[in-house]
Amino acid sequence: MTTLDVAFAAVGAIAAGSGLLAVTTRHVVHAALWLVVCLGAVAGCYLVLGAEFVALVQLLVYVGAIVVLVLFALMLTRAPIGPNRELSTGRIHRLLAAVLGAAVAALLAATLLPLADGVVRRHEIPNASLAQDIFGIWVWPFELLSLLLLVSLVGALAVSRLVGGAPGREGRR
């Protein structure tokens, strides 16, 4: 066992544990905070495997922007301190969710485990080659994704401006 194995196992365990806590806690804000730990640990996985830039972007985008947005939305609506009984789900839902989660895990394990040979390898990926891959080979999916985001942005604007009355500055008041 090398240091790399230990480091990878540690961040992996943190990611799995905090992910589990994020979906099982009854405190809605705690769930968001456990998500921070989970995403940070996934960034740690990338870092251990040598994808430094991907790890940093993961932190910058997911922890710095997405989770802040989630917390902001929670505070704007309702985020009581203490456990929230309304968040509880029925037995059937829980069972279904557990089965679905197990099925996805089994599928991933069945596909990925034959490929793995038990050795953690570190590939140092230069930032330049990453950029060449994204804007060379994968440029069309990348642009399509940007277009999708733009469309959803315009859609959100339309929904917030046009619902209930004439469009314009004071449309909703």
């Binding site: 830039f53 940093l56 910058l60 922890v63 710095g64 922007a65 802040v68 917390l71 930032n127």
Partner: peptide, 25 residues
């Protein structure tokens, strides 16, 4: 570090969470 400019931005982005946690809790 190689990508130190991104590193500093990512680190400061995490620090922001402290303010949010304090305000909510």
């Amino acid at each position: 570090t190689n990508a130190s400019a991104v590193f500093v931005l990512a680190a400061t982005a995490v620090g922001i969470l402290g303010t949010l946690m304090a305000g909510w809790a």
